[in-house]
Design a protein around this nucleic acid. Structure first.
Lengths: 209, 209, 209, 209
DNA sequence: CGGTAATCGAGACGGTACGTCATGTCTTACA
DNA sequence: TGTAAGACATGACGTACCGTCTCGATTACCG
């Protein structure tokens, strides 16, 4: 985010102020949502001047994105090598789900998505920071599973990733039901085995008189 | 939205103005997104006074919700009785996907979701209008499938619905890949059969005579 | 004020509503001043529809004027024939001063004057109703005094009236000092005898060698 | 009006804009009166934003007061030392009358008085700026006259001031007759000599040698 | 006695201005 | 150069009145 090139001339950047801004933004965002956050409010709460904020973040969405990235990146670097596809996916998705549901991040994500709808530059930045790393991990896990023969070689990986992450985002954003460990387990199991019963010995058996 | 009871006293509501507001709101919202749309702009474009808008819609989110509801409800709720679960689901989800991707509705949905994150009243109204009817249809379809023995009786219906709609919303909101008929087919198929090959006889077993 | 000609056809005017409007206007005006009085507020307080008010009074200033005229006209019809100029003037002015200072009429008068500054039609109506009758009485009193030889025949009557009423309005509108009986006595005495001491026996005497 | 203390920090106030606002307000006020003047109109005409106006003037009455004060203060407070009471008073009052009648200031004064009726804080400010200085001058003149023996020591000074200024305000606000030099002469003479003829030797006594 | 007409209640409407708030820029002094 | 302070232009906000209008209901008269 910190676009200005450090030329090693002049007064160096005040890192304390930088952190104070991110902290103030996080509190205001998570407590009241983006629309209740003004640059003036962040400046006052952070004890910083507005000019300083605009110096480093062009919009409050950019600020919110960096705040979210910082908070979520602080927890992620797990290795997902449980040996089975199901185990890897649960490890991956549960880490995300616990993070996302730990505080009202739905407010932040929804606001960022809304901004991304009409601002292609921001959308690209959002995807680069928030989505691509997660999808990259998921791709690696699924590729391993293909290599192990757990899933077919022709499986549509991108669709599979949407099938896994989509339901999680759905609950995060719509809030119609909890985004908890049980739900992640259910999603992974249902995605792996499918809705239909096994054709060989499944419920069709009872139709045989 | 028009809650005030018509008591047959006083000047009757101007329905032309009502429609003009919805039309103007639709154009502005779909072209530029909610945050770029002001009540002043809607009023001017609709040839209506701001007071009239505020009389019937307390916020622009409420207005956007009614606009979206009106446009999406115009497509008649088809009966989904193709005889098979896969057919029913494709009919249901493809209708939604075509509607949602026909115009830039992602802008509107994202804005409404952002608003719903911090406004419980609005959230309830959004769910009542936009989500509940769709989930109700999906429940009916899945219940039929259970009755026909296509899926197990113990299937977690709510999770299944999220597994189906989640990926669609995911693409609508994130725009990382197209929300087209092919994607709906893939999602339904993957949700029905699962990622894993059939465990009992292996994925290719049945091809081996 | 009731401009519409009674043609003896149609529903007759509702006098109860008429009075209710004047009463409501009086309360609001005297309590909070004209700017705090809206047609909507008067209508609600009087239990009358806005259309009814506009039917009889084109503006709220007109309404205020009629209210003031009604309340002040109810008290005036004294005869001023005490036999002396001073007595007559005190009777005339004290009646006015008691009326004007009895309730916060300064609010009403100031508002009407403000309106009269830019609306010649209203100004004429205001003068016809509120000023001309008072000045007419004063002229009569002064004419009697001239006839009795109490004051010189060449006295400028219009200036004299301003000299008498001006100070009273001054205190009513500026409120820098009380508008009470004592003040009226002082004004009349000072106007009659003048500030300067009597020239025959006064300080001028010492200039006579 | 410019209360905020200049701490020498931050961008300094734009004095050009300050003057432009006062000028624009003066033109609009004198041309159309306060009620026909909107903050939006002043802002547009002055080429200044509404927020800037509200930063320095909380209401348009406050703005009008500063405008009036500025324009009337521009006429220097001459020394009134003509040697006689009559001369001093005519000098004092004619300066005021010429100022007040030079442009349609009656509109402004009436609007300010109307505001002062219901706003004690504004009333105090109005008196401090517009009335007190004039009354202070008048008191000095009358005190000199007492010292010189021109008027009695027991003269009620406050009443005398009302007797002099009251008629002038009366004509300014009611406009029933001109506020010109002749009127000021008449008021001063009548206030000094009184309406009644000299009681000791009759009104014409001094003309009899 | 039924028609005509004026009044009244209720309240929706287009319009204008209000006073506030947030954005993003700019100007100064200080570090 | 970076920062705090804060003034500024811009423009949307949501509210409040204004004066007009369209209804249905009411109450007289007059033919």
């Amino acid at each position: 985010m910190s676009q200005p090139v450090r030329t090693q001339r002049g007064r160096p950047r005040n890192e304390t102020a930088h952190q104070a801004v991110l902290t103030a933004a996080a509190e205001l965002l998570l407590d009241h949502g983006l629309h209740a956050v003004s640059m003036d409010a962040v400046a006052e709460r952070a004890g910083v001047s507005k000019a300083t904020i605009y110096r480093w973040w062009p919009t409050k969405e950019t600020l919110a994105l960096e705040m979210l990235f910082t908070q979520w990146a602080a927890v992620t670097p797990l290795r997902y090598e449980t040996g089975s596809l199901g185990g890897d996916l649960i490890a991956l998705l549960q880490a995300w789900a616990r993070l996302a549901s730990g505080r009202p991040y739905g407010r932040v994500v929804a606001a960022l998505l809304a901004q991304a709808q009409t601002n292609p530059v921001f959308s690209a930045e959002y995807q680069r920071r928030m989505l691509d790393p997660r999808r990259h991990q998921a791709r690696a896990i699924l590729a391993q599973a293909v290599a192990r023969g757990e899933i077919a070689a022709g499986t549509k990986i991108e669709v599979a990733i949407d099938l896994l992450y989509g339901p999680l985002y759905h609950r995060l954003l719509h809030g119609h039901a909890p985004l908890d460990d049980q739900f992640v387990d259910d999603v992974v199991e249902m995605a792996l085995r499918g809705l239909q019963p096994l054709p060989s010995a499944g419920p069709d058996a009872e139709t045989q008189p």
